[in-house]
């Protein structure tokens, strides 16, 4: 008799299990969202806390990324000034320039002739009298060399400078990469700091979700106990709480994304005005697709982990299990 019962109990379950399983999850996903909507104020506050916490590292990321793009623009304009030996004539300089143009790491060579340099120097003002005293032009031919964009890293520029210095005609090559290096180092530092901050605030989000779910569990303690009594597995009991945590994560992540996007939108105009003053066409960019994905995925993951820990702690200490 018992066997017959068991067979009767099992057969419908096996037959349409995948559909039921899917339906159950779908129902759970919708039901948990509905439950959150039932208490808009506490739900909204929790989501806001998560969103603000996540928006801090996200906005730091946006800031450093924009600064990096900006610095990339400077990289391109960074040139090596190659001072040729004084005895090099303009004609010889032309030849050197032509030779250099063929180098793959160089995109442009701009020749500044001796007279031209003198004229420019004069135009700067203040040196006229001193220059009058000189019998001959003291300025050498200068080749302003613009490296290829792809080779514009400080290391490559330094290599290029040394190569240029080894030319027989060259006297001296100047490339002030130090400030660029410093700037990049600062950016790296800020980025590391924002990652650290992101980690800390992520931990905070974990605790917020965990605590919210813990309170929810306390509210539904009796329901959980009854479900355990009628034979619910831990996975079954855990499921709605996990979905709730995932919702908190997703909605919090969306809030963070929205906050950062609004900030970018608000800053767009002042930044482009500033850029125009610097004759640059720099445009403030927001969170890209992949960064948005990381924020949303990360916040959902944090919500899941937070609720997982909270539910498991409850189930571990439950008398019934």
């Amino acid at each position: 008799m018992a066997n017959k019962r068991a067979v009767r109990n099992r057969s419908p379950r096996l037959l349409d299990r995948p559909g039921i399983w899917f339906n159950h999850h779908l129902q759970s996903i919708i039901a948990t969202l509905g439950r959150l909507m039932d208490t808009p104020l506490p739900t909204g506050m929790t989501i806001a806390v998560i969103g603000i916490s996540l928006s801090l590292p996200a906005s730091l990321y946006v800031m450093t990324e924009n600064l990096r793009t900006m610095a990339g623009g400077w990289d391109q304009s960074a040139a090596v000034s190659l001072f040729l030996k004084l005895e090099t004539s303009d004609k010889d300089a032309e030849k050197v320039a032509a030779r250099l143009r063929a180098w793959p790491e160089i995109s442009q060579v701009h020749l500044i002739k001796r007279d031209q340099a003198l004229a420019e120097f004069r135009a700067l003002g203040g040196f006229e009298e001193a220059l009058e005293q000189l019998k001959s032009n003291p300025l050498p031919v200068v080749l302003a060399i613009y490296p290829n964009h792809f080779n514009a890293s400080p290391e490559n520029l330094e290599r290029l400078r040394i190569r240029l210095l080894n030319l027989p005609e060259s006297d001296f090559a100047r490339m002030d990469t130090l400030w660029l290096k410093r700037f990049q180092a600062i950016l790296d530092l800020v980025q590391s700091a924002s990652m650290l901050l992101g980690g800390l605030l992520g931990l905070g989000v974990l605790l917020i979700v965990g605590n919210t779910i813990r309170l929810e569990i306390l509210n539904r303690r009796i329901e959980i106990e009854i479900m355990e009594l009628v034979g619910a597995t831990h996975a079954f009991i855990r499921r709605p709480f996990l979905y709730t945590g995932a919702w908190y994560g997703l909605l919090g992540g969306l809030t963070a994304w929205l906050l950062v996007s609004i900030a970018v939108l608000l800053l767009q105009r002042p930044v482009s005005r500033l850029a125009t003053l610097y004759r640059s066409e720099f445009d403030l960019s927001g969170l890209g697709l992949s960064a948005t994905g990381v924020i949303l995925g990360g916040s959902i993951l944090l919500g899941l982990i937070g609720s997982w820990v909270a539910v498991n702690r409850h189930l571990e200490t439950s008398e019934l299990s």
Binding site: N9, P12, R13, D16, R17, G19, I20, W21, N23, H24, I226, M227, V230, G231, A232, T233, F236
Partner: peptide
Amino acid sequence: ALPLVVMGLGHKE
């Protein structure tokens, strides 16, 4: 219905 929901039975059943 709770024990049946927990067992994962279908709506109709």
